[in-house]
Amino acid sequence: MTATDNVASPAPSLFPVLLEHTAQYSDLDPSRRIGRDTLVRWFEDARVQLGREALDADLADRAEGLVRLRVVAVRVDVLAPLRIAGQYRIGIGVSRIGTSSVSYRYGVFAGDECVATGATTSVYVGDDGSAAPLPDELREQLGRHRIAGPEAEPPERDSARAREAYPFRLDVRTRFGDLDTNRHVNNVRLATWYLDGLAELHLDVLGYPVGGPLDGLAPSSLSVQYLGEVHYPGIYQLRVAVLDIGDDDIVRYVCGLFDGPTCVGLAEAVGSCHATDADGEPVDLAAALEPFRLRG
């Protein structure tokens, strides 16, 4: 059993909107495959396109704050290696419409093969920045692109909101380039912080090899909850812990992002604890990761 065995593999015909996309060199990670953070960005591009088609809203409208949907959760699952060669198609549909929130489902296709799936949830905000009911017109427009699909929200863990529960810490300073048009750190950029935190943990365990962590350790699944805004300037604490190491050699991680004692973001990731070193020898990290289990 692999980390993605329980993830449905949809067909392109399921999605009401399909975007053609050519992968670029900058989309690659050190393993020469499309990065997980790149997929989160592709999902954002797909939402913008859906906004053009369903909401008659372009980037200028979004820049002026006329489309007030804020991402609160995102999930990405990699089902097969994504390489630079060839064209991809990104499918998007609306999987749920709530009182003040809307959820989207995604599929990434190489030909007709689904190589990644995803989901996001966004909340409609009013003039004061708090959640507000979706306008009837917006609800109707989104309803034209309905699709069956799961929610993006990961399970809640009370212990994950306590800084002291995490044995591994990384301080992150926000940069001006991290900001989006809402003048807070963009959700795609925040997703990369959690991936950086996992990479730093792997470096610590492996003894900081030149070139970064070994191929094969990048998570196959990443799920993020955005609990509060992250601002510039600022220094935040990113905490990382191991939730479980299974008999199937799959390791489950949890990350918490803290502004002082306040938890402003949570993430869970699933990956392998096996990799191959530069000499082709297998590396088993299970024992080395044991001291980094979540406390409490």
Rank of each mutant, 00 (worst) to 15 (best):
D5E: 15
P10Q: 05
L18K: 10
T22Q: 13
Q24N: 09
L28G: 10
R32T: 02
F43I: 10
F43T: 10
A46H: 10
G51S: 15
E53W: 13
A54Y: 05
A57W: 05
V71W: 01
R75E: 11
P81V: 03
R83P: 01
A85R: 12
A85W: 02
I90G: 07
V94Y: 02
S95D: 01
T99H: 14
S101G: 07
Y106P: 04
Y106C: 08
F109N: 03
A110P: 01
C114P: 07
V115E: 02
G129L: 02
G129Q: 09
A132E: 14
E140P: 02
H145R: 14
A148G: 09
P150Q: 09
P155E: 15
A165L: 07
T174E: 00
D178G: 07
N182S: 15
N187Q: 14
T192F: 03
L195N: 02
D196W: 07
L201S: 06
L201R: 08
G207Y: 11
P209V: 01
V210H: 11
P213T: 06
A218Y: 02
E229T: 08
G234I: 06
Y236D: 04
R239H: 14
V251N: 09
R252F: 00
G256I: 05
L257S: 04
G271D: 04
G280C: 04
E281K: 12
A286G: 04
A286T: 14
E290K: 08
P291D: 06
R293C: 00
G296T: 00
